[in-house]
Write a protein that binds this DNA or RNA. Structure first.
Lengths: 146, 146
DNA sequence: GGCGATTAGGTTGTGCACAATTTAATTGTG
DNA sequence: CACAATTAAATTGTGCACAACCTAATCGCC
């Protein structure tokens, strides 16, 4: 009997697959909004509070400037956000919502329900899964630092 | 009160973050093996059984030829696999392990333990999480078809 | 005020992920 | 047998994700 790890016994693969399946379920709705999944995440953060600096967006989403800079340029090209140099600290770039960006949140309010409907889990299970994932992510990120 | 969905209430974001955190934890070990995470997944499938066609690998991992073709070329360039046209059906390309590819499974056997150690969850919780993720993924993939 | 260290953001390069298209081999049906 | 339909891979194009590096602005400390 081999000690080679088996694909279907690995939690990491289950996470990877579930994450891909979730974004696939969102894709049709997000397509109709003209957003990719990571762009949708950025908009989510901005709908909660704006303006935000690139750094703040990165901290909220766990993304660095190498990912965010081009993504934000695309959102700006779509007319959803505006990038403005901060006046107090000219190193910072503030990301502001445009009117169109603000308006898009209406169409997006139905997005999360889509996953809940497709999940095939009870609200209780979904809530417990959510809690476990948050704890897992925190522990993994913590372990990654040491 | 706004009806805009909030980032930190979304299971999809929890999945996305947990998946990224898990691959980040694996990265140092995989770096020392010279593999990326998706390359490691392909090797996992081959360690279970080989040869496999590109199609079979794609079915096991949920990846299409657009992702696998260049990935497999890189694994071949690393000397870990060989690509051979099938003799029975020349549309197929069989992926065989090289001796080096087979040998690599020794070094990889410690990889999964890394996540279990860093997870901060009891074996019971981890096992339950695994089961929930499998059910979730199946339900989402099923919903995606209709 | 001067100057090294830090911080914010951008750029470049590599490697997925996935849609859409292309090419070649095979299968099914008249 | 002919030939349309299907299937297997590869290719192309767009967009993340992340490491490594770069520039400019700010801060600390003397």
């Amino acid at each position: 009997m081999s000690d080679a790890p088996r694909l279907n016994h690995q939690v990491c693969f289950a996470l990877y697959s579930a994450s891909k399946a979730a974004t696939a379920v969102y894709r049709p709705v997000l397509d109709s909004l003209g957003l990719t999944y990571p762009q949708y995440l950025v908009m989510l953060v901005l709908w909660e509070e704006e303006p935000r600096t690139v750094r703040e967006l990165g901290a909220a989403l766990g993304l660095d400037s190498g990912t965010l800079s081009p993504l934000l340029k695309r959102l700006e090209a779509l007319g959803l956000v505006e990038r403005r140099r901060s006046l107090e600290d000219e190193r910072r770039v503030e990301i502001h919502l445009s009117d169109a960006g603000r308006a898009l949140s209406e169409g997006a309010s139905a997005v999360p329900k889509r996953l809940a409907d497709a999940a095939g889990l009870t609200p209780d299970e979904l809530s417990q899964l959510h809690g476990t994932l948050l704890r897992l992510t925190a522990a993994l990120q913590d372990a990654d630092k040491h």
